[in-house]
């Protein structure tokens, strides 16, 4: 698919409830709609320290490198860094938004190769690398990755999904 790539930008966290209501109705993706090389609509997230604190609370991961700048610096980091799991959550959102209600996420994995700093864009992308039928299921393997503003891949991974067919 050529043309301008669709990217959803999430600048600073707005009120969560508002986001739920203004959210566009998802269109359903079908197996026939994709091919090897198809790109997923991209997504840009902008995690704030407040979001990292919320994530720490919701996940129970209170490691201080994710919200205490002095602690992070004393640990040899340049500042507060984003939880790898949070960046993977953004990639998960990109995939499930794309899948629509009837698509299923079967596997998700990510390797944390670099660091995303707080108050910096996290650019999420994905691409279909394989389309196949297995045990009667219409599957696709998707390469997913997150980048920092310097263009370095900070998280790389894959997702395996099952899609409905139009047939």
């Amino acid at each position: 698919m050529k043309g301008k790539k669709q990217v959803t930008r999430y600048k600073k966290q707005t009120n969560f409830k508002v986001q739920v209501t203004i959210r566009k109705k998802m269109t359903q993706l079908y197996y026939e709609d994709i091919q090897e090389g198809s790109e997923l609509p991209g997504m840009v997230k902008y995690p704030t320290t407040m979001q990292l604190v919320k994530y720490a609370g919701a996940s129970g991961d209170y490691y201080q490198i994710h919200y205490d700048k002095d602690f992070a610096i004393a640990n040899g980091l340049s500042g507060v860094i984003v939880h790898g799991w949070l960046t993977l959550s953004f990639l998960g959102q990109m995939v499930t938004d794309w899948l629509g209600e009837r698509g299923k996420l079967l596997k998700l994995n990510g390797s944390y190769r670099g660091m995303n700093k707080v108050h910096e864009d996290i650019i999420c992308n994905g691409k279909v690398t394989r389309k196949y039928v297995e045990e009667g299921k219409n599957l696709a393997r998707v390469e997913i990755w997150a980048e920092n503003p310097q263009g370095e891949k900070t998280v790389t991974g894959t997702a395996v999904v099952a899609l409905p067919t139009r047939a």
């Binding site: 997230k45 919701a58 129970g60 959550s89």
Partner: peptide, 29 residues
């Protein structure tokens, strides 16, 4: 717990109010 997690990862999909989002197992430490 689900709502708090969905809010923390800033994923507004209403589905996550009833069902766990993909990375939710991270919270089941």
């Amino acid at each position: 717990m689900l709502k708090k997690f969905a809010e923390a990862i800033n994923d507004p999909n209403p589905r996550w109010l009833e069902e766990a989002p993909p990375t939710f197992p991270a919270a089941l430490v």
